[in-house]
Nucleic acid binder design. Structure first.
Length: 220
DNA sequence: TAGGCCATCTGGTCCT
DNA sequence: AGGACCAGATGGCCTA
């Protein structure tokens, strides 16, 4: 980690970077202090400030030296601003990665699969949402058909048939169970439904499909 | 060793 | 003015 950073910084010192020129000896150390482990950076101490090119002798060339000091100050201000921006950007990317990691925990985990990459996570999440939507849609159609069949034949309604879909109802059982089970563990959520249900068969198929294929009509 | 993935830095742009 | 967001560049690590 540190070696990589050192390489980057050393390379940048030798490049045409405006903020880290060759006379900027402390740029590397200050950047190291802004590593992800510590956001506390060592401020420019008065001692190091006094070691500047114009700190000791403010004699005859006072005006000229004053201007040089101004330039140095502007340089330091720019550098500090850059360091702060880098720190914010790092934190922003970390929060983005945290969100991605949270998304991974919600997605069903398949055995012998290594960690999904970022792009795989996003694509699988898209497909997974599509699969869940399809499952709910199919289950809803199925439920309506059962109800109309029961009404037509004047038979007693099946115990599991409900009149109106509601949160937690059978029509939504898989999606809710999937979300609840996968939120607490990484076990495959497609095993939580009743295997005898056609929707259950569909959900497994559609989940496998969502994992291994692209959603129809989806462009990347 | 090439290629994929990732973390980080950087400068530009937009927004508040 | 400063922060958020973005895309490009760069270099390290890992794997086939």
């Amino acid at each position: 980690m540190c070696t990589a950073m050192e390489t980057v910084y050393s390379d940048m010192d030798s490049s045409s970077c405006d903020y880290f020129t060759h006379d900027d000896e402390d740029s590397c150390s200050s950047m190291h202090a802004s590593s992800p482990s510590s956001s506390i950076r060592k401020p420019a101490s008065p001692a190091s400030d006094s070691q500047g090119p114009c700190a000791t002798d403010m004699g005859q060339k006072k005006r000229r030296r004053g201007r040089a000091r101004n330039e140095a100050t502007v340089h330091v201000v720019k550098k500090n601003r850059r360091v702060k921006a880098n720190d914010r950007e790092r934190n922003r990317m970390h929060s983005l990665n945290d969100a991605l990691e949270t998304l991974r925990t919600v997605l069903p985990a398949f055995p012998d699969d290594s960690k999904l990459t970022k792009i795989e996570t996003l694509r699988f999440a898209h497909n997974y949402i599509w699969a869940l939507s399809e499952t709910i849609r199919i289950a809803d159609i199925e439920q309506r058909q059962n109800k109309s069949r029961a009404d037509a034949s004047l038979l007693l309604p099946s115990p599991c048939v409900i009149d109106a879909p509601s949160p937690g109802s059978d029509a939504c059982s898989w999606s809710s169970s999937a979300s609840s089970s996968s939120s607490s563990s990484s076990s495959p959520s497609y095993c939580t439904s009743s295997p005898s249900s056609p929707a259950g068969c569909f959900q497994t198929d559609v989940l496998q499909y969502s994992y291994h294929n692209f959603v129809p009509g989806m462009s990347y």
